[in-house]
Design a protein around this nucleic acid. Structure first.
Length: 456
DNA sequence: CTAGGGTTAG
């Protein structure tokens, strides 16, 4: 009994260290425990596996299974479920299936969580049909789905673009007695956020309050992100202040969201305060937090500080991601250093990152620095483009009163099936009317209408 | 210990 209690305490401490990315300290706690005669159990190792999977990778997590065996502890169903979750995190369906196989080989019965995780994996790699098949399997095998099963289902639908369907499913389930959890609401809010439906989010928030379920930090972060996205900064900040006054500790996730919004809306001083808070709480910052800090330095024109922070992140064993590189390229462009930016863009491409946003930063940077023709030239020789690329060029062309080319570009954007901003359309239309004849404007409007009918 | 949130461009 005494030993079990101690192991429980050990697990609590290992878990809190793992959660905050302090894996080395977690290992040290394990060694200290052994020295004091407190032996780790299967839960201890499962916690370690979660930590390694999250912060190092699936392979590192899987390696812990060998250590367990050496310590004479058999992995259980949660061990394998945790590993499946780790594989899912890095989009590896094959590892996920391997774990399911290994589990069966060892005579461990998969439980509902094993199937939940497999379903999650299929959703994550963009195969909703296969995911749904797993859901059917759960029912066929007479395994009772749990609340998480439905949450994963709803989330998977949202993540694969079926947000309205997810909402319908949610309402249907509710009618059949499904009691939503805070997770369910968070999932739906996040889905609506992608659609930019901030008013619907606010009303979902109201529904949540009436239902008596307490919102958590994730709810607040999601709700404010949605407001910021649709440029309702005041409303978003209001949610942030409510979160603070209600005593929610605002974590790194909330900080990143708020800082980004503060920088975008020009609230520099508040951003500085939030950054200070972030550094205070973030003794173990992750790459997204570093990205936020790096971006903050760039926005202040402090290039050297931004660079050195990238070094710090790498020295801490964090891998720069697509955001880091994009932020760097954007910073270089805003500073007018297009040669280095271009070189880094190529570098990024070679490393296999998605370069679209970085490319847009580059094009937009050239436009704003007055190198419109250079931007057009690069644009024409690239097949990487989306509506933002067009928008930057159309904007710039209008500023240079080159309305005909702007009109042409806008039309090809629509013909490629991409949404355009109303403001771009207006600018081109007004420009044509003012510089040419009224007929030019009318003809343009007609062409836009037809293009939309054919291509949206 | 196993589902949900953050960071980049117009």
């Amino acid at each position: 009994m005494f030993l079990r209690l101690s192991t429980k305490l050990l697990n609590i401490s290992v878990a809190s260290l793992c959660r905050t990315r302090q894996l080395e300290k977690a290992e040290a706690a394990l060694i200290d425990g052994v020295r004091l005669g407190v032996l780790p159990d299967v839960v201890t190792y499962n916690i370690l596996i979660t930590g390694y999977c999250q912060f190092v990778g699936f392979d590192a997590g899987y390696y812990v299974v060998h250590r367990m065996k050496e310590a004479g502890i058999s992995p259980n169903v949660i061990t394998y479920n945790t590993l499946m979750a780790g594989a899912t995190r890095q989009h590896s369906l094959s590892c996920c299936l391997d774990m399911l196989d290994e589990m069966l080989e060892r005579g461990i019965d998969p439980d509902v969580w094993s199937y939940n995780t497999l379903m999650h994996c299929f959703f994550k790699i963009g195969k909703p049909d296969e995911a749904y098949r797993i859901f059917s399997d759960i029912l066929l095998k007479n395994i009772s789905p749990c609340q998480a099963t439905f949450n994963i289902l709803i989330n998977g639908l949202c993540k694969n673009g079926y947000i309205r369907n997810a909402l319908m499913l949610f309402r249907n389930l509710q009618r059949q007695g499904f009691v939503p959890q805070i997770v369910t609401y968070n999932i739906l809010m996040n889905g609506l956020c992608k659609l930019g439906k901030w008013k619907e989010i606010i009303s979902l928030f109201e529904e949540l309050r009436e239902s008596g379920i307490a919102p958590n930090a994730i709810t607040y972060t999601t709700a404010m992100k949605c407001c910021f996205r649709s440029k309702h900064y005041k409303e978003g900040l209001q949610i942030f202040y409510e979160m603070k006054t209600r005593g929610y500790a605002y974590d790194l996730f909330a900080c990143c969201t708020v800082v980004a919004a503060l920088l975008k809306s020009g609230r520099r001083q508040t951003a500085d305060k939030c950054i200070a808070h972030m550094i205070k709480i973030g003794y173990e910052l992750d790459i997204a937090s570093y990205n936020t800090l790096i971006n903050w330095h760039f926005k202040q024109g402090k290039l050297e500080k931004a660079y050195s922070l990238i070094d710090v992140a790498e020295a801490r064993g964090l891998d720069c991601d697509v955001y880091t590189h994009t932020i760097l390229i954007n910073g270089l462009c805003k500073a007018g250093n297009f040669d280095v930016a271009r070189r880094h863009l190529n570098h990024m491409k070679m490393m296999g990152f998605d370069c679209l946003v970085a490319f847009n930063c580059f094009i937009n940077g050239l436009c704003r620095a007055g190198h419109l023709d250079h931007a057009l030239q690069i644009f024409n020789s690239s097949d990487m483009k989306d509506s933002v690329t067009y928008s930057s060029l159309v904007n710039s062309l209008c500023r240079h009163r080159r309305y005909r080319l702007a009109a042409e570009l806008l039309l090809s954007c629509i013909r490629a099936g991409m949404k355009i901003l109303k403001s771009d359309l207006k600018a081109v239309f007004r420009g044509l009317n003012r510089s040419g004849t009224k007929r030019d404007g009318k003809k343009f409007k007609l062409k836009v209408q037809i293009a939309k009918l054919l291509h949206y």
